[in-house]
Simulated assay, not measured.
Amino acid sequence: METTNLTYESAYKELTEIAQEIETEAVSVDVLAEKVKRASDLIEFCQTKLRATETEVNKIIKQMENPPA
């Protein structure tokens, strides 16, 4: 999956566009599998990004609650 310079926002936007194309049947059968695969990769990227962000935020909160003595 191409993730160079990919941000959560751009991945989510592309995912939304793919979903819209599939829902409106604007995707030909010839490229449907390709679009579904790309959507799967984007979902995985977004989930990974969200988990990493959650971990980082929790770490910051924990540091704020227990400042070094």
Results as ranks from 00 to 15, higher is better:
53 T>I: 09
56 E>G: 02
25 E>T: 08
63 Q>N: 15
41 D>I: 02
44 E>H: 05
66 N>R: 08
25 E>Y: 06
61 I>C: 10
49 K>L: 04
64 M>S: 06
69 A>H: 08
5 N>S: 12
30 D>G: 05
27 V>R: 01
23 E>V: 05
32 L>G: 01
49 K>E: 08
13 K>I: 01
42 L>E: 00
57 V>Q: 07
29 V>E: 08
31 V>A: 07
12 Y>F: 13
29 V>G: 02
45 F>Y: 10
9 E>L: 15
59 K>R: 15
67 P>D: 01
2 E>H: 05
49 K>V: 04
41 D>N: 04
67 P>W: 03
21 E>G: 02
55 T>K: 11
20 Q>I: 06
23 E>P: 01
49 K>P: 00
30 D>K: 12
20 Q>K: 12
4 T>F: 15
32 L>N: 03
56 E>W: 07
35 K>G: 04
18 I>W: 07
51 R>G: 00
1 M>V: 14
49 K>H: 12
8 Y>G: 11
20 Q>D: 14
22 I>Q: 09
61 I>V: 15
60 I>L: 15
8 Y>M: 10
62 K>P: 00
10 S>L: 14
26 A>M: 14
10 S>K: 13
3 T>G: 00
16 T>Y: 08
27 V>A: 10
19 A>F: 05
7 T>P: 03
22 I>P: 03
6 L>V: 13
25 E>W: 00
65 E>T: 05
64 M>N: 08
32 L>D: 01
4 T>Y: 15
44 E>R: 04
41 D>K: 01
1 M>N: 11
31 V>E: 05
54 E>W: 07
54 E>V: 08
64 M>F: 02
68 P>C: 04
21 E>K: 11
27 V>L: 09
47 Q>C: 03
62 K>I: 00
47 Q>I: 03
35 K>S: 07
42 L>D: 00
28 S>I: 07
69 A>D: 11
25 E>L: 10
31 V>M: 04
2 E>W: 07
33 A>Y: 08
42 L>G: 00
60 I>N: 06
28 S>D: 11
2 E>G: 02
55 T>R: 07
34 E>L: 14
54 E>C: 13
46 C>R: 10
59 K>T: 10
13 K>N: 02
44 E>M: 06
31 V>S: 11
69 A>L: 14
29 V>M: 05
19 A>H: 11
56 E>Y: 09
66 N>D: 06
33 A>S: 11
